[in-house]
Simulated assay, not measured.
Amino acid sequence: METFRFQPGETPVLLSIPHVGTMIPPDIAATMTEHGIAQPDVDRHLDRLYHFAPALGIGFLTALCSRYVVDLNRDPEGIVAQPGLDPTELCPLTSFDHAPIYRAGQEPDRAEIERRVGAYWRPYHEQLHSELRALRDRFGVAVLFDAHSVRSRVPRFFDGTLPDFNLGTGDGSSAAQPLVARLMNVLSASERYSAALNGRMRGGYIIRNYGKPDENIHAIQLELTQSTYMDEDAPYRFRPDLAAELKPGLERLMSAVVEWAWQKASGQRRAAYL
């Protein structure tokens, strides 16, 4: 069963979209509530929003399975990335609105969770791990851009309304400060969209696990508010009008990542690409 899609790029940058998948295997779907089947917390349409990435030479890795099957941005050991929040589980039991995902008595037990980690979680992370090291070995540096989206208001996790662009670097641990500063300069230039660095969304398991600046592997998480490109309520329509306004700034941001990565890449390897 195919659980992710991967396309290599020709730059030191990899785009990961771990929460865009909507596929739920029939045996798991049979145990879920209607609310669970509706998947209100999926990062919908991000693959469509970032469709320009391959043209910049960026490789991409996107999940096919829903985060309700297993959350690829959670630690398999259950360690919470951001203490103080009300986190969802590796195999979430409730939605962001605290509604049950499973029918009573049909929640996944330990054995089922371990099965899902092996079948759905591990393949994604094995590909992510191997590609980042391949990029670092090829270019001398690798940058992971972990793309997410979230409703602009989720009382379970934060008060009020989120900024439009929420950049997370694990409180500064997952990426070099000059790279982060360059990206914040790009975001700060916008008169339309607001931005925050390591605010209420500081990054999950993926960037904290793979971002190792001392080993020339840098990782950044971006949480876009869904109101910038789609309807936040069902049926969660993609909004081409909103996306058309958002994409130029998003492309400038991704171009800045690629530019910085090339500047840090080995001269010989860059020359081979050119």
Rank of each mutant, 00 (worst) to 15 (best):
E259F: 15
A243G: 06
Y205S: 02
D109G: 10
R74M: 05
D137K: 11
I79C: 09
P25K: 03
R151E: 05
V150P: 00
Y205I: 01
R103D: 06
L222S: 01
V80G: 01
D97R: 14
D241N: 11
T31D: 15
E232L: 07
R5P: 00
E114H: 02
Q268S: 06
D164I: 09
H98N: 06
G204N: 03
F145E: 05
E191V: 07
Q263L: 11
P213N: 13
T225A: 13
A81Y: 05
P18Q: 08
Q177R: 14
F157T: 02
Y229P: 01
H45C: 06
R115S: 06
G36F: 09
R110T: 14
E77D: 14
A244C: 04
M230V: 07
R182C: 10
A196P: 00
D43Y: 12
E10L: 06
R237H: 15
A196K: 11
P100A: 04
F139N: 01
N216H: 15
H35R: 13
L49K: 05
P8S: 11
G267P: 00
F4A: 00
A63L: 08
M1T: 13
E114Q: 10
D137Y: 08
D233W: 13
G172K: 09
A196Y: 12
E259W: 10
L224T: 08
S95G: 14
V20D: 07
L144Q: 09
Q106P: 01
P108W: 08
H98E: 10
D27A: 14
C91P: 00
G170H: 08
V70G: 08
P76L: 12
S188V: 06
T88R: 04
H35N: 04
I37M: 15
V80Y: 08
P108E: 06
N73H: 08
D43Q: 02
P18L: 09
R156Q: 02
L64W: 06
I113P: 00
R103L: 14
A195P: 10
P163V: 10
P100Y: 10
S152I: 07
V69P: 03
S188C: 06
A63R: 05
F158V: 05
F145S: 03
A99N: 03
L162R: 03
V186C: 12
R270H: 09
V69G: 03
V180Y: 12
